[in-house]
Design a protein around this nucleic acid. Structure first.
Lengths: 226, 226
DNA sequence: CCAAAAGTGTTTGCTCTACACCCATGG
DNA sequence: CCATGGGTGTAGAGCAAACACTTTTGG
């Protein structure tokens, strides 16, 4: 069943890196230096090395582009259409990553990227390969997970106000939420704790909260047939 | 960024094939003919060919083992730990498949499998590679999807009674469901239609229903923060 | 004192859950 | 006529949604 000498597809990882920047959900893209799709934008990614796991490869690519090692990282889907890369067979394992808004970010791209830039999810440029499809799927998964898990906190700094969480949710879900219901729910869920610190800005200062690492925030989906 | 001459992992697909047999959820396994793990049981699978997509490869493997081409097939996860295959680097894309209970089944295994057998999900034998982990993840996903989608119908014959659906759900979820609530929900969901046919067995004959192909049965998960 | 954002409860409707008896058929 | 599984409705509890005003600070 398993043999050793046969033609093999190349195997790469691509990472959809999300972050909140300028009050928008943005994706990190790099501009392609060479052919094909020269000058077009693409997801950070590269080939999987023989001695690293897929997750390590994704983490390494992210580190190379952003300087960040610690982030929420989740495998998304594996794309393997024979025609997805014009140069030959390349199968890619896509990951999606969430970066905290206050994380340090190394501006200049990694070794092999000519340029790295953040793009708002709603105004993406033309993308190389099937990367547009990958990003849209990642965005769909993010919205979906937001509804039944606490993944949204991965995008926030370690301390945040209730209004900031709500804005995050509104931004990603693209809908307005009721302030009182939102606060009641999130507090009842027991996944955040209030600190004794406040943040001053315009208007009345807001209490700062932080995410409870030990929180079990998975919520059972409503069953079709319970 | 992309180059062409570099060592590449081998790429395979493995398929977790579920079916209801003898009123139990069962998985199709093959017995390994050669080393490593000779004589142990494993998932049907094999290498991806250069000219086929991943889904085509999974479908082909399923066809070789079961004789079935038409089935529900969904990509599950890609496993790529460098040490998962003792012979070298093999990355595998796992799929899960659901086969209707009344589907014709070619008993003898395919070309390279010495033997193929159905095992109840609760009494699996020792498994080669990381296949136990893969099956458990597939089972978890199946249970999960059952709760918010109509995927359960993929396991049923084209016509079925309400009791049969309920038994299917109870079997997979491993819990007893209330008959009246179950029936009300499934009928209100509008994903099945009654026929004018009945099935006689012991006791009062039961009305037969069939699945509406055009049904939109995804149910919004209960939101943590709506 | 005014602008800006933070913070706070209650009512109403709907959905989920629990629960028990009669019906139709075959032997 | 009896055993077997099929089929049916309702009341109570808990959850989700809608909704507006007061509080605190900085300028």
């Amino acid at each position: 069943m398993y043999t050793y000498s046969h033609p093999r597809p190349a195997l790469s990882v691509d990472v959809v890196i999300f972050s909140l920047r300028d009050s928008q959900l943005q994706v990190l893209l790099i501009q392609r230096a060479g052919e094909p799709f020269q000058g077009m934008w693409a997801l950070p990614g590269g080939f999987v090395r023989m001695d690293e796991s897929l997750e390590e490869a994704a983490s390494r690519e992210m580190q190379e582009e952003t300087g960040l090692q610690e982030a929420y990282l989740e495998q998304l889907y594996t794309y393997g259409e024979p025609s997805r890369d014009p140069r030959g067979r390349v199968v890619t394992v896509a990951y999606f990553a969430l970066i905290q808004a206050d994380a340090v970010f190394r501006k200049e791209g990694g070794s092999d990227a000519s340029q790295a830039l953040w793009y708002p999810i709603n105004t993406l440029p033309d993308l190389a390969f099937d990367h547009k499809e990958i990003i849209h799927y990642a965005y769909r998964r993010l919205r979906y997970k937001l509804e039944y898990s606490a993944v949204g906190f991965e995008l926030l700094p370690t301390e945040f106000t209730l209004s900031e969480i709500q804005q995050t949710y509104e931004m990603i879900l693209r809908e307005k939420l009721d302030k009182r219901n939102f606060r009641r729910r999130i507090l009842q869920a027991g996944i955040i704790e209030s600190t004794d610190r406040m943040r001053s800005g315009e208007g009345r200062p807001a209490r700062l909260y932080h995410y409870r690492e030990d929180a079990v925030a998975e919520v059972k989906a409503r069953r079709l047939f319970p």
